[in-house]
Every structure is written in C-alpha cells, then in structure tokens.
C-alpha cells in the first residue's frame, strides 16, 4: 500500500494509505442507558470503594485500548505509537496508563477535541511513512472532571439549560497502513477561534464558531460540499451549539447544513429523559460515539462518508475565574467506508 500525504489547503492534508482497523469503547452506566448504549463494547461500573475517580478514568482508558487492539488482532508490541489525551491536569490518565503499556507515547490536549486531534496527527504520521500502527484514544470521567472543573460531587447546585454533562467514556482506535474497513481521506488541523463567549456553563456557544471554521476550511480544501457526506458530526456542541453552528453556516456561508450536521454530545444521551440539558461533553464523548456508533454506521450501516470534527473549549478554571473568554478549536477528519476491504 502506498502511503502518501499532500497539503491541500491551510492546515489541510489529503492522506492515502491510512486505515482504521478497529475501535474499542468503554462507557459508564448513564451512557450505556442512552440511545446509543448497545453500540458500545463494555459498560463499566465502578468496582471497589477505596478507588478514586482518577483511577477509574485510567481503567476506562486502558480497557478501551485493550479492546481496540484485541478487535484489530494486534498485541501491544505491534503498536508503534500511542496518541491521545484526557481532561485531567497534566494529562495524568494518559501518562499513567502509558506506564502499563510501555509503548512510545505522545500526550495531547485539545479538551473535547482531543480524539480528532489524535486521529489527525496519527493519520499524518502514518501517511507520511512514519509509524505503521498508531493507537489514538481519548477518555473522560464525569466525576473526575467535575471535581477538577466545577464542584465537589455532593455539593448541591443547579445546572443551567446550556450546561453539558461530562461523559464517562473512553474510545480508542487503531490507525494502520494495512487496509481496514475505514479509510482516512483527509484531515484539517483547527485554529483557535474566540468569539468572546465567557460563560463556563455554556461551552456550546463558545465552540460552535470553531466547528464551523474548521468544517468550512476542510470542505473548501477538498472541493466538497456537505452533500458529499452521509453525516458531519461535531463533538460536544450539544443541542444549543448545533443550532448556533447551523445559524452560522446559514448566515455567514449561505449554506444549509441541517440535513447533515449532528453532534456527538447531542446523540449520546436522551436529552429529555436523562436530564443532561444541552448534551454530553468530555474528551471521551466523541471518541466513544465514533468508536461505537459512527464507525458502525460506516462499516455496517451503509454510510459512505463521515466528517468527524470534534470541538474543544480551551479554558481552565483559572482563566474562567479571571474573566477571560473561552478560546475554542476543532480538528476534522474525513473518513470513508472501504467496501470489500476485509473487515477485521
């Protein structure tokens, strides 16, 4: 298989010879009870009582990586590079899990856009003739994130209609130069966009402009329109953020994305029944929704093309307290179903 990468626009690259062999997903109870529950590999419930939420997050990530490798029929020594990240300070989850697998590791942070950042960078490296097998992953844990970003678990507070619920989820995908059921076509690296939104209870409105910017640049570089895709999934804009993204596309670009654009955070939960307000967020959300639901649509659901553009709100609790606005980023990856390619 020839591996090739070509610059096709600012931050956009067409890649050849890069495939996703398999994905592993692990989710918490609440995610398993959502509408996508049966697409995930493992529903994970906390075991012993002496453990911390941070430890639980590590277990989630490790399980998802092991499942992805098992489905791709690979062992750890075959993995030439591990890429990925999480939401915790100093990327402890990704690094601590690296202690167990011992493979070359690059930790990444782009908040909820981490998974597509890992997919994009991994695809570029594989296409460029670097590592032949890359494991890309992202994880988040509701309560570990909550205690770091917001409040202690048992402290009462009301949520806002625009609040998102950090998902307890992990997703890992095996990228390789060997043919597989899903091919990576092109990637676009996002740039930081900030339209001055400041409300830390509303990431959707902060991230929507970044999503539109990246999707627009990606389509323009490829000379495509939204109609060339079966679906375009952003990551974690939620219900409100999706509406804003549609509005931006309509007003600023004069394009109607309604039939194609959906959002990982919007589909993970039943928004009414599960009381999550605006939807899911967290680095693990788009990773698990892709590894479970979206990749299934590509391999078995009849979709031909998917554009995955996860978005990240790049703030910290400190910058929020200091009254700074929320810079955001989105990284996009175009994926194509490989019919006839051996489903491994």
């Amino acid at each position: 298989m020839t591996r090739r990468v070509a610059a096709i626009g600012e931050g956009s690259y067409a890649v050849e010879g890069v495939y996703i062999l398999a994905s592993g997903t692990v989710v918490g109870d609440k995610e398993a009870q959502g509408p996508l529950g049966h697409y995930f590999d493992v529903t994970w419930s906390p075991s012993g009582s002496s453990r911390s939420f941070e430890r639980e997050e590590r277990e989630l990530l490790q399980r998802s990586q092991e499942i992805a490798l098992a489905k791709a029929r690979l062992d750890w020594p075959a993995v030439e590079l591990v890429l990925g990240g999480d939401l915790l300070d100093q990327l402890v989850t990704t690094s601590f899990v690296g202690r167990a697998h011992g493979r070359p590791l690059l930790g990444m942070f782009a908040a909820c856009a981490t998974f597509t950042e890992a997919l994009a960078v991994g695809s570029l490296l594989v296409a460029g003739g670097g590592p032949a097998v890359v494991l890309a992953s992202a994880v988040s844990h509701h309560y570990a994130a909550e205690r770091q970003f917001r409040y202690p678990v048992e402290l009462g507070n009301q949520r806002y209609p625009t609040s998102s619920w950090t998902a307890t989820a992990a997703g890992s995908s095996v990228l390789a130069s060997a043919p597989g059921p899903i091919a990576v076509e092109a990637v676009t690296i996002g740039r930081v966009v900030d339209y001055g939104q400041k409300d830390p209870n509303d990431y959707g409105s902060a991230m929507a402009p970044a999503a539109v910017d990246t999707i627009h640049r990606h389509l323009r570089a490829l000379g495509r329109t939204v109609e060339d895709y079966d679906a375009i999934f952003t990551g974690d804009l939620g219900e409100f953020g999706r509406r804003l993204a549609l509005k931006l596309a309509q007003e600023e670009l004069g394009e109607d994305w309604r039939a194609r654009l959906d959002d990982c955070g919007r589909v993970l939960y039943d928004l009414q029944r599960q009381d999550v307000h605006n939807g899911a967020s967290g680095a693990g959300c788009s990773a698990a929704v892709f590894g479970g639901y979206l990749s299934h649509q590509l391999t078995q659901g009849g979709w031909r093309r998917l554009l995955l553009a996860a978005t990240g709100a790049l703030l910290s609790p400190t910058t929020a307290q200091q009254g700074e606005s929320i810079p955001s980023i989105a990284h996009a990856v175009s994926l194509r179903a490989e019919r006839g390619g051996e489903a491994r």
């Binding site: 678990v153 048992e154 402290l155």
Partner: peptide, 30 residues
C-alpha cells in the same frame, strides 16, 4: 442534599443547611 439543591436551587443553598453542605461535600470528596 445535592438532589434537594438541584430542585430547590437557592432554596436549599441559602439556609444554614446549604452552608453545612458546602463544608461537608468537599471534605468527603477530597
């Protein structure tokens, strides 16, 4: 108590019981 606050908002946070919740919850958490 966190469920009571989710429902009652400031109705559960403003009384002295909310103040106690604000001390007990982080102590448990950490």
């Amino acid at each position: 108590y966190d469920r009571l606050t989710k429902l009652g908002g400031m109705g559960a946070s403003l009384p002295i019981t909310g103040f106690a919740n604000a001390m007990v919850a982080p102590a448990m958490e950490f």
